[in-house]
Simulated assay, not measured.
Amino acid sequence: MSIDEAKNELPPNYEELKVSANRTSSWRERLNAVEELGRWNTPKTIDVLKHRLNNDTVYQVQEAAYHKLKQLGEDVQLPSRKTGDLIKGVTKILVRIKKSLPAGHSFEEFKEKLKKMRLDVYDAYEGERGADFDKWLETVWASL
Results as ranks from 00 to 15, higher is better:
residue 62 Q to V: 02
residue 48 V to L: 02
residue 35 E to V: 11
residue 36 E to L: 02
residue 100 S to I: 01
residue 74 E to M: 15
residue 76 V to R: 01
residue 137 L to D: 04
residue 88 K to E: 15
residue 122 Y to H: 05
residue 59 Y to T: 04
residue 88 K to D: 15
residue 120 D to N: 09
residue 130 G to N: 04
residue 84 G to D: 13
residue 115 K to Y: 13
residue 58 V to A: 05
residue 139 T to L: 12
residue 100 S to T: 07
residue 50 K to I: 08
residue 117 M to F: 11
residue 36 E to N: 13
residue 130 G to E: 09
residue 85 D to F: 03
residue 53 L to N: 10
residue 35 E to K: 11
residue 104 G to P: 08
residue 63 E to W: 08
residue 50 K to T: 01
residue 134 D to R: 09
residue 32 N to C: 01
residue 105 H to W: 07
residue 124 A to S: 15
residue 33 A to Q: 07
residue 123 D to Y: 01
residue 74 E to Y: 04
residue 42 T to Y: 01
residue 35 E to G: 01
residue 123 D to M: 12
residue 99 K to M: 13
residue 48 V to I: 13
residue 41 N to I: 00
residue 37 L to F: 01
residue 109 E to R: 15
residue 98 K to D: 12
residue 105 H to D: 10
residue 131 A to D: 13
residue 78 L to T: 00
residue 27 W to M: 11
residue 83 T to I: 13
residue 101 L to D: 12
residue 131 A to V: 14
residue 37 L to D: 05
residue 23 R to L: 14
residue 100 S to L: 07
residue 20 S to W: 01
residue 59 Y to P: 05
residue 126 E to T: 11
residue 53 L to R: 14
residue 113 K to L: 15
residue 57 T to Q: 11
residue 127 G to I: 01
residue 33 A to F: 01
residue 90 V to R: 15
residue 70 K to M: 10
residue 84 G to N: 12
residue 64 A to E: 06
residue 48 V to K: 01
residue 79 P to Y: 08
residue 71 Q to R: 14
residue 79 P to A: 04
residue 38 G to L: 00
residue 122 Y to K: 05
residue 86 L to N: 05
residue 105 H to N: 15
residue 89 G to F: 05
residue 108 E to T: 12
residue 26 S to K: 07
residue 47 D to V: 06
residue 83 T to E: 08
residue 72 L to Y: 00
residue 72 L to I: 07
residue 51 H to A: 15
residue 59 Y to A: 06
residue 136 W to K: 08
residue 66 Y to D: 01
residue 128 E to S: 09
residue 81 R to Y: 01
residue 123 D to R: 04
residue 96 R to S: 14
residue 57 T to V: 06
residue 95 V to S: 06
residue 41 N to D: 10
residue 137 L to M: 05
residue 128 E to T: 07
residue 119 L to Q: 03
residue 34 V to D: 05
residue 118 R to A: 08
residue 93 I to Y: 05
residue 125 Y to H: 12
residue 81 R to Q: 12
residue 116 K to R: 13
residue 60 Q to P: 00
residue 58 V to H: 02
residue 24 T to S: 11
residue 87 I to W: 02
residue 21 A to L: 00
residue 58 V to I: 00
residue 124 A to M: 11
residue 71 Q to W: 07
residue 65 A to Q: 06
residue 107 F to E: 11
residue 32 N to H: 05
residue 63 E to I: 06
residue 127 G to N: 04
residue 45 T to C: 12
residue 83 T to Q: 11
residue 130 G to V: 04
residue 78 L to M: 08
residue 63 E to Q: 13
residue 20 S to D: 11
residue 93 I to V: 08
residue 100 S to E: 11
residue 96 R to G: 15
residue 136 W to I: 11
residue 77 Q to I: 13
residue 87 I to A: 03
residue 82 K to C: 04
residue 74 E to S: 10
residue 112 E to I: 03
residue 62 Q to T: 03
residue 134 D to S: 13
residue 37 L to Y: 01
residue 62 Q to L: 00
residue 20 S to V: 00
residue 29 E to D: 10
residue 119 L to W: 02
residue 100 S to N: 06
residue 68 K to S: 14
residue 101 L to K: 08
residue 49 L to R: 03
residue 126 E to Y: 04
residue 57 T to N: 09
residue 26 S to T: 06
residue 118 R to G: 05
residue 111 K to I: 02
residue 72 L to N: 00
residue 20 S to A: 14
residue 28 R to V: 11
residue 90 V to S: 14
residue 62 Q to H: 03
residue 56 D to C: 02
residue 120 D to P: 02
residue 59 Y to I: 07
